[in-house]
């Protein structure tokens, strides 16, 4: 192995600090504080502005949780899943279907969402992880499409038309019909998700998963059952994304198979890459930036997809390491 390659490997296996560099620490903390305080302040001051509204930020936070979970397998594990939106859909339907039948308890919805998504991840992951490279990208997409068509075929639950959730999950102790409470809950879940990923990637288990990303053959040679490690990571990510789906379902109070279409999976991937793969807060930066720009451009012009597409391509071509990389380097290009 050449020097640069081994340096890269070391770079990969270096334990990420929670916030990264000192600049990174400041920027990240400020960013997370803004994300919490601005919408809350706007709410109490009665500022009616879409971009800082609780609604808008709650939607971003749900997607950020999904992006954080995708980052666990994509960024740290090197598994390029093009079907991650499936877990969002499953999580959301785990709220919608019981609610449709009159079972409104959050203590049913949320565990069900996590378990069902994890189970889907276990079954599909077990098959998908037999393949690699582009085949893996495409088979994960195929499974997501199957999920999409499965929910499409469920006539009872609205099929293509989707399902309206008439009351949000009932926790008993808190009331998420209040959008402030839902926002705070989602924020807490996001922080918990980031912290879990931090603990996971720094555990022995996480080191093996990251090792598979850098050099799977070597991990195998060291005697690790890499398949089992990767599958476990895949299942954890699936379950975490199911939670994001349950939150998103509760937030929108409307769910449809469209939540799991392939372009949604593509958007999630984009958030992760834009923010910076393999960093703890990167996916959050990515999700916020992505949705923010999309909303901003679409408020100006019907043809917003044109500048948006150009921005996407430019960011792929020119921002190395994503936004997180920029932040860690203190805004310098390299």
């Amino acid at each position: 192995m050449s020097d640069t390659a081994s340096a890269q490997l070391n770079d990969h296996l270096r334990v990420p600090d929670f916030f990264g560099s000192s600049t990174g620490r400041v920027v990240t903390l400020v960013f997370m504080a803004v994300l919490l305080l601005v919408p809350v302040a706007a709410h109490f001051l009665g500022i009616r502005l879409q971009l800082v509204s609780l609604d808008f930020i709650t939607r971003i936070l749900c997607l950020a949780i999904a992006a954080v979970s995708l980052n666990l397998i994509l960024g740290f594990g090197g598994m390029i899943s093009f079907g991650h939106a499936a877990f969002i859909g499953i999580g959301a339907y785990c709220v919608g279907i019981p609610a449709y039948h009159g079972y409104g308890s959050a203590w049913l919805h949320f565990p069900l969402a996590v378990v069902a998504s994890a189970a889907f991840a276990l079954i599909t992951g077990a098959i998908s992880l037999r393949t690699r490279g582009v085949y893996f990208i495409m088979i994960t997409m195929a499974f997501a499409q199957m999920g999409y068509y499965f929910f499409l075929s469920l006539e009872e639950y609205g099929g293509d038309d989707g399902l309206t959730i008439y009351s949000r999950s009932v926790f008993g102790i808190i009331d998420i019909e209040d959008k402030m409470v839902l926002f705070l809950l989602t924020y807490a879940c996001l922080v918990a998700a980031i912290y879990s990923v931090y603990r996971i990637v720094n555990s022995r288990f996480g080191m093996v998963v990251r090792g598979c990303n850098s050099n799977e053959a070597r991990m195998k040679a060291l005697g690790y059952n890499t398949y089992a490690y990767k599958l476990t990571a895949y299942v954890i990510a699936g379950g975490m994304c199911g939670l994001a789906g349950a939150l998103l379902g509760n937030f929108t109070t409307f769910i449809s198979p469209d939540m799991m279409s392939w372009s949604r999976s593509g958007e999630l991937m984009f958030m992760v890459i834009l923010g910076g793969t393999g960093s703890l807060f990167g996916p959050v930066f990515g999700a916020v930036t992505f949705v923010f720009i999309e909303e901003l451009l679409s408020s100006f012009t019907t043809y917003w997809a044109l500048p948006f597409g150009i921005l996407l391509i430019l960011s792929v071509l020119f921002i190395k390491g994503g936004l997180n990389g920029l932040i860690q380097r203190g805004w310098k290009r390299d």
Partner: peptide, 20 residues
């Protein structure tokens, strides 16, 4: 670049082409 970048850049292309 790797496949991931291919997927993302061409994803951006779809948006541009449809709008054009």
């Amino acid at each position: 670049r790797d496949h991931l970048d291919h997927v993302l850049a061409t994803f951006g292309f779809i948006l541009i082409a449809d709008t054009l």
